[in-house]
Simulated assay, not measured.
Amino acid sequence: MSMSVSRRRVVVDGDACPVKAEIARAVRANGATALLVSSHAHVLKPEPSVEVVTVDASDQSADLYIANVLTNSDILVTGDYGLAALGLARGSAVLTPRGKEIRETDIEGLLEQRHFSARQRRGGVRTKGPRAFTEEDRDRFQQKLTTLLRGMQEIPNV
Protein backbone atom coordinates (compact mmCIF):
# COMPACT_ATOMS: atom_id res chain seq x y z
CA MET A 1 0.00 0.00 0.00
CA SER A 2 1.54 3.29 -1.06
CA MET A 3 1.18 6.49 0.91
CA SER A 4 1.26 9.90 -0.63
CA VAL A 5 1.66 13.10 1.33
CA SER A 6 -0.59 16.09 0.81
CA ARG A 7 0.93 19.55 0.85
CA ARG A 8 -0.29 22.12 3.29
CA ARG A 9 -2.82 24.45 1.68
CA VAL A 10 -4.37 27.77 2.58
CA VAL A 11 -7.87 28.21 1.12
CA VAL A 12 -8.91 31.85 0.92
CA ASP A 13 -12.32 33.50 0.68
CA GLY A 14 -10.72 36.01 -1.68
CA ASP A 15 -13.35 38.60 -2.52
CA ALA A 16 -12.77 40.94 0.40
CA CYS A 17 -9.52 39.53 1.75
CA PRO A 18 -7.04 42.32 2.62
CA VAL A 19 -4.09 39.96 3.23
CA LYS A 20 -3.63 38.21 -0.14
CA ALA A 21 -0.02 39.38 -0.49
CA GLU A 22 0.82 38.14 3.01
CA ILE A 23 -0.72 34.75 2.22
CA ALA A 24 1.33 34.43 -0.97
CA ARG A 25 4.55 35.25 0.90
CA ALA A 26 3.76 32.86 3.76
CA VAL A 27 2.91 29.87 1.57
CA ARG A 28 6.03 30.30 -0.56
CA ALA A 29 8.23 30.67 2.53
CA ASN A 30 6.74 27.55 4.13
CA GLY A 31 6.49 25.17 1.18
CA ALA A 32 2.70 25.33 1.08
CA THR A 33 0.16 26.39 -1.53
CA ALA A 34 -2.81 28.74 -1.56
CA LEU A 35 -6.15 28.55 -3.32
CA LEU A 36 -7.85 31.95 -3.69
CA VAL A 37 -11.54 31.72 -4.54
CA SER A 38 -13.39 34.81 -5.76
CA SER A 39 -16.28 35.92 -7.92
CA HIS A 40 -15.95 37.38 -11.42
CA ALA A 41 -16.34 40.82 -9.84
CA HIS A 42 -12.84 40.52 -8.30
CA VAL A 43 -9.93 39.83 -10.62
CA LEU A 44 -7.14 37.99 -8.83
CA LYS A 45 -3.91 36.94 -10.48
CA PRO A 46 -2.31 33.56 -9.94
CA GLU A 47 1.35 33.57 -8.94
CA PRO A 48 3.87 30.94 -7.85
CA SER A 49 2.27 28.63 -5.22
CA VAL A 50 -1.04 30.53 -5.52
CA GLU A 51 -3.91 29.12 -7.59
CA VAL A 52 -6.92 31.31 -8.37
CA VAL A 53 -10.43 29.97 -8.93
CA THR A 54 -13.13 32.33 -10.18
CA VAL A 55 -16.77 31.43 -9.55
CA ASP A 56 -19.92 33.14 -10.78
CA ALA A 57 -21.06 36.28 -9.02
CA SER A 58 -24.21 34.80 -7.50
CA ASP A 59 -24.61 35.05 -3.75
CA GLN A 60 -22.67 32.35 -1.87
CA SER A 61 -20.95 30.83 -4.95
CA ALA A 62 -17.47 31.31 -3.50
CA ASP A 63 -18.57 29.94 -0.11
CA LEU A 64 -20.13 26.85 -1.70
CA TYR A 65 -17.04 26.18 -3.80
CA ILE A 66 -14.80 26.52 -0.75
CA ALA A 67 -17.03 24.31 1.40
CA ASN A 68 -16.81 21.58 -1.24
CA VAL A 69 -13.00 21.57 -1.56
CA LEU A 70 -11.92 22.02 2.08
CA THR A 71 -10.14 19.18 3.83
CA ASN A 72 -8.91 18.62 7.36
CA SER A 73 -5.37 19.51 6.26
CA ASP A 74 -6.33 23.02 5.08
CA ILE A 75 -6.22 26.42 6.70
CA LEU A 76 -9.28 28.49 5.75
CA VAL A 77 -8.90 32.28 5.71
CA THR A 78 -12.26 34.04 5.97
CA GLY A 79 -14.09 36.72 7.87
CA ASP A 80 -17.43 35.03 7.20
CA TYR A 81 -18.57 33.15 10.30
CA GLY A 82 -20.98 30.95 8.36
CA LEU A 83 -18.14 29.78 6.13
CA ALA A 84 -15.90 29.46 9.19
CA ALA A 85 -18.46 27.08 10.72
CA LEU A 86 -18.40 24.97 7.55
CA GLY A 87 -14.60 24.95 7.63
CA LEU A 88 -14.54 23.79 11.23
CA ALA A 89 -17.04 21.05 10.39
CA ARG A 90 -14.61 19.87 7.69
CA GLY A 91 -11.77 19.80 10.21
CA SER A 92 -9.94 22.78 8.75
CA ALA A 93 -8.11 25.36 10.82
CA VAL A 94 -9.85 28.74 10.44
CA LEU A 95 -8.13 32.12 10.57
CA THR A 96 -9.64 35.58 10.08
CA PRO A 97 -7.76 38.20 8.02
CA ARG A 98 -7.08 40.00 11.32
CA GLY A 99 -5.18 36.98 12.63
CA LYS A 100 -7.77 35.52 15.01
CA GLU A 101 -7.97 31.75 14.94
CA ILE A 102 -11.60 30.63 15.18
CA ARG A 103 -12.11 27.44 17.14
CA GLU A 104 -15.09 25.16 17.75
CA THR A 105 -15.56 26.79 21.16
CA ASP A 106 -15.92 30.25 19.51
CA ILE A 107 -18.20 29.62 16.57
CA GLU A 108 -21.60 29.33 18.27
CA GLY A 109 -21.24 32.71 19.98
CA LEU A 110 -19.93 34.34 16.80
CA LEU A 111 -22.88 33.00 14.78
CA GLU A 112 -25.34 34.16 17.47
CA GLN A 113 -23.82 37.66 17.41
CA ARG A 114 -24.01 37.73 13.59
CA HIS A 115 -27.68 36.71 13.72
CA PHE A 116 -28.48 39.29 16.42
CA SER A 117 -26.80 42.10 14.45
CA ALA A 118 -28.59 41.11 11.22
CA ARG A 119 -31.92 41.07 13.06
CA GLN A 120 -31.23 44.56 14.44
CA ARG A 121 -30.33 45.88 10.97
CA ARG A 122 -33.54 44.43 9.51
CA GLY A 123 -35.40 46.26 12.27
CA GLY A 124 -33.84 49.57 11.26
CA VAL A 125 -31.15 49.78 13.93
CA ARG A 126 -27.80 51.04 12.68
CA THR A 127 -24.99 48.75 13.81
CA LYS A 128 -21.30 49.54 13.79
CA GLY A 129 -19.25 47.97 11.05
CA PRO A 130 -15.81 46.50 11.62
CA ARG A 131 -13.05 48.82 12.75
CA ALA A 132 -10.52 49.94 10.16
CA PHE A 133 -7.97 47.32 9.13
CA THR A 134 -4.53 48.23 10.53
CA GLU A 135 -0.90 47.31 9.98
CA GLU A 136 -1.04 45.59 13.39
CA ASP A 137 -3.87 43.40 12.05
CA ARG A 138 -1.74 42.60 8.99
CA ASP A 139 1.29 41.73 11.13
CA ARG A 140 -0.78 39.60 13.54
CA PHE A 141 -2.26 37.71 10.58
CA GLN A 142 1.18 37.08 9.03
CA GLN A 143 2.56 35.78 12.33
CA LYS A 144 -0.42 33.53 13.06
CA LEU A 145 -0.55 32.09 9.54
CA THR A 146 3.18 31.36 9.63
CA THR A 147 2.78 29.67 13.02
CA LEU A 148 -0.09 27.52 11.72
CA LEU A 149 1.82 26.56 8.57
CA ARG A 150 4.94 25.63 10.51
CA GLY A 151 2.93 23.68 13.08
CA MET A 152 1.04 21.60 10.55
CA GLN A 153 2.43 18.15 10.02
CA GLU A 154 2.47 16.74 6.52
CA ILE A 155 -0.62 14.58 6.50
CA PRO A 156 -0.26 11.17 4.89
CA ASN A 157 -3.04 10.11 2.49
CA VAL A 158 -3.65 6.41 2.51
Score class of each variant (00 low, 15 high):
Val11Met: 01
Val12Glu: 03
Val12Met: 09
Val12Gly: 12
Asp13Val: 05
Asp13Leu: 00
Gly14Ile: 03
Asp15Ile: 03
Ala16Thr: 03
Ala16Trp: 09
Cys17Ala: 05
Cys17Ser: 04
Pro18Cys: 04
Val19Gly: 06
Val19Tyr: 07
Val19His: 09
Ala21Asn: 14
Ala21Glu: 15
Ala21Ile: 11
Ala21Gln: 13
Glu22Pro: 00
Glu22Arg: 10
Ala24Cys: 08
Arg25Phe: 07
Arg25Tyr: 12
Ala26Thr: 01
Ala26Pro: 07
Arg28Glu: 15
Ala29Cys: 07
Gly31Thr: 12
Ala32Phe: 01
Ala32Gln: 13
Ala34Met: 00
Leu36Met: 13
Val37Tyr: 02
Val37Phe: 03
Ser38Ile: 01
His40Lys: 01
His42Thr: 06
Val43Glu: 02
Leu44Lys: 05
Lys45Leu: 14
Lys45Val: 00
Pro46Asp: 07
Glu47Phe: 07
Ser49Gln: 14
Val50Phe: 07
Glu51Pro: 02
Val52Met: 08
Thr54Lys: 06
Thr54Phe: 07
Thr54Gly: 01
Asp56Ala: 03
Asp56Arg: 10
Ala57Leu: 03
Ala57Ile: 04
Ser58Tyr: 06
Ser58Asn: 07
Asp59His: 15
Ser61Tyr: 03
Ala62Gly: 05
Ala62Pro: 08
Ala67Gly: 08
Ala67Trp: 07
Ala67Glu: 09
Ala67Arg: 04
Asn68Thr: 04
Asn68Ser: 15
Asn68Asp: 14
Asn68Leu: 13
Val69Cys: 05
Leu70Cys: 06
Leu70Asp: 03
Thr71Tyr: 14
Thr71Pro: 08
Thr71Lys: 08
Asn72Leu: 05
Asn72Pro: 10
Ser73Ile: 10
Ser73Arg: 11
Asp74Lys: 10
Asp74Thr: 00
Ile75Asp: 11
Leu76Gly: 03
Leu76Phe: 09
Val77Leu: 10
Gly79Met: 08
Asp80Ala: 05
Asp80His: 01
Tyr81Asp: 07
Gly82Ser: 13
Leu83Tyr: 09
Leu83Asp: 03
Ala84Phe: 05
Ala84Ser: 05
Leu86Asp: 01
Gly87Thr: 01
Ala89Phe: 12
Ala89Val: 01
Gly91Ser: 02
Gly91Leu: 11
Ser92Val: 09
Val94Leu: 11
Thr96Arg: 06
Thr96Val: 06
Thr96Cys: 14
Thr96Asp: 10
Pro97Cys: 02
Pro97Gly: 11
Lys100Arg: 15
Lys100Cys: 11
Glu101Pro: 12
Arg103Met: 12
Arg103Gly: 00
Glu104Gln: 13
Thr105Leu: 08
Thr105Asp: 11
Thr105Trp: 08
Thr105Met: 10
Thr105Ile: 07
Ile107Arg: 10
Ile107Glu: 06
Ile107Val: 12
Leu111Arg: 13
Leu111Pro: 04
His115Ala: 15
Phe116Lys: 15
Phe116Asn: 12
Ala118Ser: 04
Ala118Asp: 09
Arg119Asp: 12
Arg119Thr: 09
Gln120Asp: 03
Arg121Phe: 01
Arg121Tyr: 03
Gly123Ile: 00
Gly123Cys: 05
Gly123Pro: 08
Gly124Ala: 06
Val125Gly: 10
